[in-house]
């Protein structure tokens, strides 16, 4: 019996390695973290840093070559009226999309977190995730057809004898246009559709963590439904909503495909980056433009933190 015991204890090479790792846990941690750290540190942060660096260079107007000297002239150009226009347009669109996504997502997420049974929850996850399985391009082009002048939406409004409503909507200055597919309204609708899952999922996760007894307690203490929503549900859902808004906001800020397919031909930041680094060959300007969403997100998160959005975390 004692021999069998000794045999088991001596073990093979694998056992000895396991024991050594057990006694030196920091080495195991290092082994696990090194690849992702290298990836994030060098490939991701490194390229971000070189991008930032590029934005402090400028382009020689005659030769079109990048002058590798520190200058703020590219940023000076960034703040020209036309470029400010692009930035304001993109940021307003991102804000509008985020607010709309939050409003649409909330009841869906609330239902899934509070009332759905196991089966309904499975259907919910499938319904939210399913669109993500098909190509984003296909879905955007599908929307172009839906929103076109000859599209199903126009036909639907005509059948309901409500074309006047659509026309009134399209007659609105700035956001209107000749048809939905070439107006900001169209761009907005497609953005909201495409990014909605990224708002629903974190919101649902946040609502799921709210214990039902806390809602009972609020009612018990005299709060009616509106007050319970305002003082308990909303503050507790806020971290999830902010997480979702980081997705919808930053994805809208950086997207260059949707506004190119559906909407007026006016530029968004993503398209400006694309044009400057491509045909124009103005890498410093493209880099300066890509810094804009980073700065906007930084400001957004700082304000959100100040307002106590992460207090319930």
């Amino acid at each position: 019996m004692s021999t069998a015991f000794a045999y088991e204890r001596s073990g093979g090479m694998g056992r000895r390695v396991s024991t050594w790792l057990y006694l030196h846990p920091w080495f195991l941690l290092l082994l696990l973290l090194a690849p992702p750290l290298l990836w994030l540190g060098i490939v991701y942060l490194g390229s971000l840093f070189s991008l930032l660096l590029q934005s402090f260079f400028s382009v020689d107007e005659f030769s079109g070559l990048v002058v590798r000297e520190f200058t703020l002239s590219t940023y000076g150009e960034l703040f020209s009226a036309a470029n400010i226009d692009i930035i304001v347009r993109t940021a307003s669109m991102a804000a509008a999309v985020t607010v709309a996504a939050a409003i649409i997502a909330f009841p869906i997420a609330y239902y899934a977190a509070r009332y759905a049974g196991a089966k309904a929850k499975a259907v919910f996850y499938l319904a939210v995730m399913l669109p993500l399985w098909s190509s984003y391009l296909v879905r955007v082009y599908a929307w172009k057809l839906i929103l076109a002048k000859e599209g199903i939406l126009n036909w639907f409004f005509a059948k309901l004898h409500m074309t006047w409503l659509l026309d009134a909507l399209l007659a609105t200055p700035v956001i209107g246009g000749t048809s939905l597919s070439v107006s900001y309204i169209g761009t907005f609708l497609v953005f909201v559709y495409i990014w909605l899952p990224y708002m629903i999922l974190p919101l649902q996760a946040a609502l799921e963590r709210v214990p039902p007894s806390v809602l009972d307690a609020s009612q018990d203490l005299g709060a009616h439904a509106g007050q319970t929503f305002r003082y308990v549900i909303l503050p507790l859902a806020l971290p999830g909503m902010v997480a979702g808004s980081i997705f919808t906001f930053s994805l809208t800020l950086g997207d260059y495909i949707i506004p190119g397919i559906v909407g007026s031909s006016r530029l968004f930041i993503g398209q400006a980056v694309f044009l400057h680094q491509g045909t124009a060959g103005n890498i410093p300007m493209a880099a300066a433009f890509s810094v804009v969403p980073i700065v906007i997100m930084g400001i957004y998160l700082t304000v959100a933190k100040r307002l106590g959005a992460f207090d319930a975390l």
Partner: peptide, 30 residues
């Protein structure tokens, strides 16, 4: 919220995002 009855819950059900003062004063605030 229309009943003259209040409850101490098994899991206490305190509002995690409020401090002790906020929790205790909640019934008065609403």
């Amino acid at each position: 919220f229309e009943r003259d009855v209040n409850t101490v819950f098994q899991d206490y059900a305190l509002f995690p995002h409020m401090n002790v003062m906020g929790n205790v004063a909640y019934g008065l605030m609403v």
